[in-house]
Amino acid sequence: MYAFDYTRPASVADAVAALRSAEDGKLLAGGMTLLATMKQRLAQPSHLIDLRAVPGLSGIARDGATLTIGATTTHAAVADSGEVRAAIPALAHLASQIGDAQVRNCGTIGGSVANDDPTADYPAAVLGLGATVVTDRRRIAADDYFQGLFETALEEDEVITAVSFPVPARAGYAKFPNPASRYAVVGVFVAAVGGAVRVAVTGAGQSGVFRVAAMEQALAASFTPEAIADIAVPAGGLNGDIHASAEYRAHLVGVMARRAVAAAIG
């Protein structure tokens, strides 16, 4: 790992100020992506700004039809939360399937959503539920937030403080994990939320997480696995790699979508 300077700001405002004054500063949350990348010398930030000591960034709160999860809340805390299990069981299930136990003990929702890995799990839930990414300066709708591979609407000096999820009538998540890393080869999140149906796919798209309009329409008419049995997702625009061809991923989108619907109504 290359050398860097380290600071531990005590407020979000201090974190933003530290990002602004550093030559190439990076926020550090769970470190499960950032430190792993730095160990490979694939990233060389000049400063790490550790969010650990910022009060109020971690925690889970339900306010009526909204569930808000603080940015530094770990995957394990989401998976084990009674509040999340009661409001959006599919979200607790998704968090429980991320990586392994030690990754879940450190990795955070804010880090995952900021990183926007095309094979990460949380982007499917954020887009699939139509959640809102809350930052130090604004609220960003999921449909505007994800902008491609590792690309988001975040500014260089912007800090995610929380993610706000509408509580859905029902929701389900199914993923086909890469057996070595547990990242999604394909993961599909479906939700009946706010009178509409949303279907979001991670792991498959060449430009990250995406929605499937044809499935959303079919499920709005009938929220059953059978309703989408004949909907094929084209392989064009999907990833092909040593783990799965684009055609295989296209097939898996259908299978995972049907499993996610079955989980949502089960």
């Binding site: 380290y6 550090l28 470190g31 499960m32 430190l35 792993a36 160990k39 790490l48 550790d50 394990a76 136990a101 030690q102 990754v103 003990n105 450190c106």
Partner: peptide
């Protein structure tokens, strides 16, 4: 809690 000490400063 169990963590990977190779991926924590």
């Amino acid at each position: 809690r169990s963590v990977k000490s190779c991926t924590m400063l």
